[in-house]
Design a protein around this nucleic acid. Structure first.
Length: 437
RNA sequence: GGUGGGGUUCCCGAGUGGUCAAAGGGAACAGACUGUAAAUCUGUCGGCGUAGCCUUCGAAGGUUCAAAUCCUUCCCCCACCA
């Protein structure tokens, strides 16, 4: 018999572990029931996504992969987008005020998100994933109905005992608004609704969602007498404590227009050794036994970065397809391998189509443009002063040659190919300047 | 509504009339070392620029040769009390 999805997730570290009485236990509301249900029948699992952005980012990959593993095991994923709850803001996690989204915007984002998700889970076929929006049911309810059907089932004592609320009550600086305080009831009701209307047995979520999820299983028990299941995955951190999923302060998006396949690939290849094994388990479908082998090989020859290469290739292929991966690989090879000598416009364009570029006038170049101006105008540096400091510190290369002269003026003699100059700051940040008449 | 405490450069946070573009820490960026890793070390970190100048310390006014620092009004946050 095939490995159950429960064991698969557990082997990959996709089920959170918590300390209970000195022992490590899995963060599942009822492990026995969960195992039993998952191995005996087809069940539905839902995870909520925030539709406030036009694209998902790598921080969303863990829930996405979780759903994908369930589907591969024959279960049905339900993607819930929080058209209603997204307006309020979950007090678990951070507490910045959210902006209200209008419906058109949400619809547009939902479409985009669905397209990205369909690279991981199928919305067609036998156990097709479905997408639902909680605005469709929460938006219907009146406040009085709400208090009667949902509020009645929760004591305030229960609610303030939840970690997400308690921490805010204890925090004298922060406080918690009534709106945020109510959030867990909305999420509980989502689960109740999906349980009764869509036969959804399981809710998945990040470990910070535990309180909200159990509020849901409690509500279901009280109103139906039945037992639903909650399961949480760990929140990703990097080994060195940096924020996962950010590069130079920017989110790594799944949308190729927001984060190019090249940048996407580069993000993964820069993973730390200490993270790469976990990442392979989390973000690729490579079997865990193979991952062990890959990592052993990597440990023998760390400088070859085989594990990082494999990771980057796997994830990029799923998100951007084989074509996207190949173009990322070509660009990587040129940028980190050879010089730019002898390349034509066509080749440069092809290889660097993912690298940010700026158009400038050829006539201006012939007259001479200082490197400082160019760095500032392309947006590589925020100001001329920053550009000056960067060059002084040896951080700028033109066509892969480090610049020593702060006052360097570039002319058409500096062109790498017919019409282009390649700027680089640091080791990895590239920018293509194209000159036209 | 009352009382008290606050709002400082990306974040935290010092600074109570000139020596403040503003301590310290974090983040970030660059350099060295490496393996496009981590750790470490070094430098930078408001803008323009050779010296120097310009714009910042919740907002607007005012006092002063001189204000983040004093005064007035206003806005916002927090705590306690009612």
């Amino acid at each position: 018999m095939a490995k159950s999805v429960f064991d698969e997730l557990n082997d990959r570290g996709l089920i959170n572990k918590v300390d209970r009485d000195g022992k490590q236990i899995l963060a599942v509301t009822n492990e026995v029931a969960a195992r039993e249900a998952l191995s005996s029948r087809k069940v539905s699992i839902y995870i909520g996504f925030d539709p406030s952005a036009t694209s998902l980012h790598v921080g969303n990959l863990v829930p996405i992969m979780t759903l994908a593993h369930f589907q591969r095991a024959g279960h049905r994923p339900i993607v819930l987008v929080g058209g209603a709850t997204g307006m309020i803001g979950d007090p678990s996690g951070r507490s910045t005020e959210r902006t209200l989204l209008d419906n058109d915007e949400v619809d547009k984002n939902v479409e985009a998100i669905k397209k990205q998700l369909s690279r991981f889970v199928s919305f067609e076929g036998e156990n097709a994933a479905i997408m639902v929006n909680n605005a469709d049911w929460i938006g219907q309810k009146s406040y009085l109905e709400w208090l009667r059907d949902v509020g009645k089932h929760f004591t305030v004592n229960y609610m303030i005992a939840k970690e997400s609320v308690r921490s805010r009550l204890e925090d004298r600086e922060q406080g918690i608004t009534y709106t945020e305080f109510s959030y867990m009831l909305l999420q509980a009701y989502d689960f109740f609704h999906l349980f009764t209307e869509f036969d959804c047995l399981i809710q998945g979520g990040g470990s910070d969602q535990w309180g909200n999820i159990t509020a849901g299983t409690d509500l279901i028990r009280k109103r139906t007498g039945k037992e639903a299941i909650g399961i949480t995955y760990p929140l990703i951190t990097t080994a060195s404590g940096e924020k996962f999923g950010k590069s130079a302060g920017n989110a790594i998006w799944l949308d190729g227009d927001l984060t190019s396949p090249y940048s996407f690939y580069q993000y993964w290849i820069n993973s730390e050794d200490a993270d790469v094994e976990r990442y392979l388990k989390f973000f690729s479908f490579v079997p865990v036994e193979d991952i062990a082998t890959i990592c052993e090989e990597h440990a023998k020859d760390p400088h070859k970065r085989e594990a990082q290469k494999r990771l980057a290739a796997e994830v990029t292929r799923v998100v951007h397809g084989e074509e996207g991966l190949q173009s990322a690989l070509r660009a990587t090879q040129v940028l980190f391998g050879s010089t730019l000598d002898g390349l034509s416009d066509k080749e440069l364009n092809e290889i660097f189509k993912d690298v940010p570029s700026t158009d400038m006038k050829m006539t201006d170049l012939k007259a001479g443009i200082t490197l400082i101006d160019m760095l500032a105008d392309t947006g590589m540096c925020k100001s001329k002063g920053e550009a000056r400091r960067l060059i002084k510190g040896g951080g700028v290369s033109v066509n892969n040659n480090r610049v020593e002269d702060i006052e360097l003026t570039l002319t058409d003699a500096n062109l790498a190919s017919e019409t282009m100059i390649m700027l680089r700051s640091g080791k990895k940040r590239y920018h293509l300047v194209k000159f036209q008449n």
